[in-house]
Write a protein that binds this DNA or RNA. Structure first.
Lengths: 363, 363
DNA sequence: GACAAGTTTGGGAACGTGCCCAAAGAAGAG
DNA sequence: CTCTTCTTTGGGCACGTTCCCAAACTTGTC
């Protein structure tokens, strides 16, 4: 409905532009050719850097281009090359709003950086719900983009498969499961969580809980597993290591912390699978009169601004989010350039950043 | 250079697609016309919602579209309609990185929300430096977008004028000066800063400093002026109200605070023109042994996450950033639809959110 | 000095769509 | 039954580019 109106108006507008005003029409390749005294093809070759052009012709064309201020029309070009020179970055807004937000900003920066020396443009698609997901596939089917970047995928997300069936290059930040078939890059969630668990053990904590994200996401499962591995290696008895499943939100973190304290009043450390949940957990701990880190140590994941601004400052697992963004972009560009290429599965290293919230027991 | 490679590869790729595989060519309007037993134009009319089509023909076309899974090619359409149905959102990355970041996230959400029921796509352009600014104008001149949204403009920024001369609809978040000629929406910086100053006066503070942003930005000047107005109205002697100019960064906030304390050791309140600078100021205050809010009250601007997570929580002026995003988008869409329309200059209300960092003197 | 081999050139066709306009068909009036 | 008017239809053209391919021009060789 709206669409039709917009189109109708657009047409009217071009009409105005051409008739009313002095019509400062944009120069086309034809104009340039005439000005330079050569054929269209020669201009095209110069513009596209072909070396099948004599120096004289090249010079003439370049002069004409400069004089006329010619810029190639990318839409027309896209029509024949069947390339739009743009990719889509799809971000589920429901989750970005919930606090992992700096994560998405960092991904965007990484993507943008990787696109920098390319002629490729970035289309940002914020998806709110299922309905918009469907619109998205329609949009993608219009071939308005050459490839798609998907962030924060859930286990049974159908979108990656749909895109694959459309034959559209697709790369994920994160993965649906450890058996992910599409190209993707994710951080070493297992190793990161393990180092967090180990750190808590090493600082003398003996009853270490964890708060996980939704278990239909690989990040959540991997971080849970890493924590478990650390507990096992340290020989921690499972009854000292309670698990609460949450949803990556601050409120969820609070609720999970409440449940953990109810079940295991003696716990002296908690590893939250995200800084946002860690912030929620800290709120709840303080509300129940526990001191951080004296009574309970807290470790988060992401090393976002929250960790820096929290009080006490929050120990957290740093993941190279910006690098993930630039990596998946590079992989996508390769896949667009060579659709037959091997799928790439990359795991990027994490690093534990120790701050005040996990100072050793005794101190 | 890279560009050429990409193009060459792209061509090769389409070749592969057509020859090697069974060529599952996308249906075109022609295919649909043949399938439905009508002419191309009739299909076009149905697709674009014209009512000059008989019911019978319409039904046949719709059936054919459904069978063939036809989706119009937006690139081809764009070539003739001279519309791309996409707009660009230009964000200076240098500044986004410096901490006002949640501001940009919120703007993006607002823009995306306003685009929701439109067929318009969002192109995100992160600009790092002057060189990229130039690339940008080239890109824009390619007519890959129908309009441009500009965020965080400085006083003598040439880009808005360039865009205007190109005849490309442009709307700003913020403005270059109070005399801004282009359409724009900004928050009531003057009023917001004034309410912050008044709040400090009302809580019994008597030596109230301010830390401003770069004075080549209207936001900075307006917030400074609002604070000055509040001081004047309260009859504060100017020597009790020192001003330090900074740059919207945390480090800048620290340095400014240091300078203020050196000049006016007795100050008991400071209004920072952004939360990030307020955070820096708080760090410096604490380092010098001043208690917040007992010794010095602090008020920020933005009401970002920093204000919520700071310790003590930070009183701050909330501005409707997401609303600014959706507003400028709506204005831009109107201007694209009707280029002759009146320029719109909108000021959105702010609200003071009182938290712990500015509790009254006595308490 | 002609012929082969290489280099450079430009016109034609195509990409998939929307719009103009003339033509075909339907309906109504006399 | 014919003429007018209104509705519906579809072919041709244009949008600005790239690619194919044949033609024109160079250069080198015997």
């Amino acid at each position: 409905m709206i669409w039709h109106n917009v189109l109708a108006n657009g047409v009217q507008w071009t009409g105005d532009e051409e008739n009313d005003m002095g019509a400062p029409q944009r120069p086309t390749i034809k104009t340039v050719a005439a000005r330079a005294g050569v054929g269209r093809t020669t201009v095209s070759r110069v513009v596209n850097g072909s070396d099948l052009v004599s120096d004289a012709a090249k010079a003439a064309v370049l002069a004409a281009i400069a004089e006329l201020n010619y810029v190639p029309n990318s839409v027309a070009r896209g029509l024949v090359t069947r390339r739009t020179n743009s990719i889509a970055l799809v971000i589920p807004e429901s989750e970005s709003r919930l606090g992992a937000e700096p994560y998405f900003s960092a991904v965007i920066r990484g993507v943008s950086a990787a696109l920098r020396d390319t002629r490729t443009q970035l289309q940002l698609v914020l998806v709110r719900d299922r309905e918009e997901r469907d619109q998205l596939t329609a949009h993608v089917a219009e071939r308005r983009v050459d490839g798609v970047l998907l962030v924060s995928v859930h286990q049974h997300d159908p979108l990656p498969d749909i895109l694959e069936n459309l034959g559209l290059p697709t790369v994920l930040a994160g993965r649906r499961s450890a058996e992910e078939s599409l190209s993707h890059a994710c951080s070493d969630n297992l190793g990161g969580a393990k180092s967090a668990g180990r750190h808590l053990v090493d600082s003398g904590r003996t009853a270490i809980a964890t708060i996980t994200g939704p278990l239909d996401m690989d990040v959540s499962r991997s971080r849970l597993q890493g924590w478990k591995d650390a507990m096992d290696e340290a020989g921690m008895p499972p009854e000292n290591c309670p698990v609460a499943t949450s949803d990556f939100t601050e409120e969820g973190g609070m609720a999970a912390m409440r449940s953990l304290l109810a079940r295991s009043p003696k716990l002296d450390a908690v590893f939250a699978a995200s800084d946002v949940m860690a912030a929620g957990a800290m709120l709840e701990l303080r509300r129940q009169g526990r001191r951080i880190p004296e009574d309970v140590a807290v470790v988060g994941f992401d090393d976002s601004y929250i960790a820096r601004y929290a009080h006490p400052s929050l120990t957290s697992v740093r993941q190279p989010v910006e690098e993930i963004g630039s990596t998946i972009t590079r992989v996508l560009l390769e896949e667009i350039a060579d659709p037959g290429s091997q799928r790439q599965k990359l795991v990027l290293p994490t690093e534990l950043i120790v701050r005040d919230s996990s100072s050793p027991c005794g101190s």
